[in-house]
Design a protein around this nucleic acid. Structure first.
Length: 147
DNA sequence: GCCAACGTTGGC
DNA sequence: GCCAACGTTGGC
């Protein structure tokens, strides 16, 4: 999952009560579908820092609560308010994530691109802009071996 | 700040 | 249903 650290970083998550927060504000249907349907409790998730000085994978989170409606979609004062999301038929979803650990160092995008075993990673495909995307087990293991 | 890639909107 | 216009993402 991607976030701009100027908005919300791995350290922001750590500073939250119980090191846990909801992953709100996703407003893309493909990403929504993954949040809603595919991501399960106890899944592990890479925290990717985008659009910043050191772009790459910064840490690991754990899903502690499966999908439920994104409350920010119902709040007119929230930047992610969506008047078309009806509480009776919510359009957007969140999961709760708990900080697990930071990687020993940020594994940068540049470095990820340099490794053949990661060639097919969703993150590295051209034009990819999804903020939530799957990681294969083999990719996960390989990335952690780079630490 | 630039711009390629992509998603969404809305007129027709 | 098509597609031009527009907005957003995110690396550089």
């Amino acid at each position: 999952m991607k976030s701009e650290p100027s908005e919300f970083s791995i350290d922001t998550l750590y500073a939250r009560p119980k090191h846990t927060d909801m992953w709100d504000g996703v407003r893309n249907y493909q990403a929504r579908n993954m949040l809603r349907d595919s991501i399960k409790k106890r899944d592990l998730v890479f925290f990717y820092h985008s659009n910043c000085a050191e772009i790459g994978i910064a840490g690991i989170m754990e899903v502690v609560k499966e999908s439920y409606p994104d409350p920010t979609a119902f709040d007119p004062d929230d930047a992610h308010f969506d008047p078309n999301s009806d509480p009776a038929n919510p359009r957007w979803f969140v999961v709760d994530l708990k900080f697990k650990r930071k990687l020993k160092r940020v594994i940068t995008l540049h470095e990820l691109k340099s490794h053949a075993p990661l060639r097919d990673m969703r993150l590295l495909q051209k034009g990819n802009r999804l903020s939530v995307m799957p990681v294969q087990q083999s990719e996960w293991d390989f990335i952690l071996s780079l630490e």
